[in-house]
């Protein structure tokens, strides 16, 4: 579905060259839930911008369904840490924005919106403005807004990192439930190891800057998963320790830098 082949990305900060990613190669198969973890500043978000065609690699290539990404990739959905809802529009209008952009007939918009409002438990809040919603509800609204236009691949950039622990746990449940239902391909960026292992089929570990792939770990935990129960099982803890060992030195390095 999505493949990075020897991707290097450099930026320039005044005269200094900053290498965000160096020779990154991995791929994401269709229908898989893949997380990328790494210390802060390891170029995780750069990966997303490259796949979206918002910026181009300095070297190497990004392939989407076997074709090189050279322009904005409108097959993707993008969910960011800040939910970026349109504050001036109601929840309903927020959710259908992609459909309006694509000029879908009103009736069809309404049907889809009703389905996703219901799926995300937002039916009673359709006429509310984002400011009236709790943090969790805002997240569910931004999820609904993305899923509604059925992008083939959903990129999530630390979507839950601003939520408190309990709400975060509930969002994990929610996301897994919806993902089982829709079977989207998901590329999930996070610095939270527990989150990455709980949700994913595969975890890609990046090193400190310049970001390179340190390891790709398959998470063979059974599905469907219950995030709260899963996190106390010996299997989970074993994987957690393995990934943590890989990450520890790099986190130290990026902290020292």
């Amino acid at each position: 579905m999505l493949e990075y082949r020897g991707v290097t990305k450099k930026f320039y900060k005044r005269d200094a060259e900053v290498v965000a990613l160096r020779n990154v190669s991995f791929k994401i198969d269709e229908g898989r839930f893949v997380s990328v973890v790494g210390p802060s500043g390891c170029g995780k978000s750069t990966l997303l911008n490259l796949s979206a065609g918002l910026s181009m690699p300095t070297a190497g290539e990004v392939l989407y369904k076997g074709k090189q990404v050279t322009d904005i990739n409108t097959q993707l959905g993008y969910i960011t840490q800040r939910d970026n809802l349109l504050e001036w529009s109601t929840v309903y209008d927020n959710i259908v924005i992609a459909l309006r952009i694509r000029r879908m007939p009103r009736q069809k918009q309404k049907e889809l919106a009703d389905y996703y409002l219901n799926l995300m438990g937002l039916t009673d809040f359709a006429k509310h403005y984002p400011m009236e919603l709790s943090g969790g509800m805002r997240k569910r609204a931004s999820l609904a807004r993305t899923l509604i236009y059925s992008p083939e691949l959903v990129m999530m950039d630390e979507p839950f990192s601003a939520l408190d622990a309990h709400v975060k746990g509930m969002m994990h449940e929610e996301l897994l439930r919806v993902w089982e239902l829709e079977k989207k391909t998901i590329l999930f960026i996070t610095h939270d190891l527990t989150e990455a292992i709980t949700l994913s089929d595969q975890v890609v570990v990046l090193s400190a800057r310049p970001g390179t792939v340190k390891a790709i770990i398959d998470i063979d935990l059974p599905r469907p998963r219950d995030p709260f129960l899963l996190q106390t099982t010996p299997e989970f803890i074993e994987i957690y320790h393995r990934v943590w060992e890989l990450l520890r030195d790099d986190i130290r390095k990026s902290e020292a830098a």
Binding site: A52, L54, I72, N73, T74, L76, G77, Y78, T80, R82, N84, L86, I97, A98, R100, I101, R102, Y149, P151
Partner: peptide
């Protein structure tokens, strides 16, 4: 927000739609 503009562009919005919406 640049992010919001990017999100909407990925939804398929052209420049005019980004400006207007």
């Amino acid at each position: 927000s640049r992010e919001l503009v990017d999100i909407v562009r990925l939804m398929g919005a052209g420049t005019l739609q980004v400006l207007w919406r």
